[in-house]
């Protein structure tokens, strides 16, 4: 599904070129659950952003679903974001002025789903994550774990093929973190491709495959046989 070839990402300052990613070669197949690990500044988030079409590499090739996705037009890129890729974040990034219900509904509005259909889709998800009672609350009124659940709900409501998670458990204590990881695992079992950046060794083990980044290079790439 994802094919990265010789991906570089660097910043030029006056005297030197600083590499964030260097010569990354990575292939991710459909249905994989990939954990990306590495210390701070190793380029995990940049890699995720490049995969999620929020950042572009300085050089290299990127095929997504068989198509080259470098230098996309705004319209095409937005289409990918609407239908193909979704994100969850460490800081949840929910819109604070909106209720839980409205937050989850937003991607559907952009996708142009009819109001009647939206209602049933949001209701399904609320039901699935057991947050029906919270639907009229605002994000600040929820616990971190609940907020992240809303974040996941928002991410998957548009039925994406690829879910990118940037340290989704980073702000959560371990029981809540486990709950989130269980949810992701479940989604993966349903066939969703997930790439997941984390610091946490234990949570990384939820992935079927783990890569470790260091100074912009992939140091190891292991498949777990479980």
């Amino acid at each position: 599904m994802i094919q990265l070839t010789n991906i570089d990402k660097y910043y030029d300052s006056k005297f030197q070129r600083t590499y964030v990613l260097k010569d990354i070669i990575l292939e991710v197949k459909e249905g994989e659950f990939l954990s990306v690990m590495g210390p701070s500044g190793s380029g995990k988030s940049t890699l995720l952003n490049i995969i999620g079409l929020m950042d572009s590499p300085s050089s290299g090739k990127y095929l997504l679903d068989g198509n080259s996705v470098l230098d996309l037009k705004e319209k095409v890129r937005v289409d990918y974001h609407r239908n193909f890729i979704s994100f969850i974040f460490q800081a949840y990034h929910l819109i604070e002025e909106m209720t839980v219900y409205e937050n989850i509904e937003t991607p559907l509005i952009y996708k142009g789903v009819k109001s009647h259909d939206r209602e049933s889709m949001v209701a399904d998800l609320l039901d699935r994550f057991n947050i029906v009672a919270k639907k009229d609350l605002f994000p600040q009124q929820l616990s971190g774990g609940q907020q992240q659940l809303v974040g996941i709900a928002r991410a998957i409501i548009s039925k994406p093929k690829l879910l990118l998670a940037d340290e989704p458990t980073g702000n959560l204590h371990s029981t809540q973190g486990e709950m989130i990881m269980e949810t992701l695992k479940e989604l993966n079992n349903e066939g969703m491709t997930i790439i997941h950046v984390t610091h946490n060794e234990k949570f990384a083990q939820y992935g079927k495959r783990i890569i470790r980044l260091e100074d912009g290079n992939i140091r190891s790439d292991t498949n777990r046989k479980t």
Partner: peptide
């Protein structure tokens, strides 16, 4: 931040 979230969620 809000604009960023919206864009990631597919706003043009």
């Amino acid at each position: 931040k809000e604009i960023g979230i919206r864009k990631v969620n597919g706003a043009t």
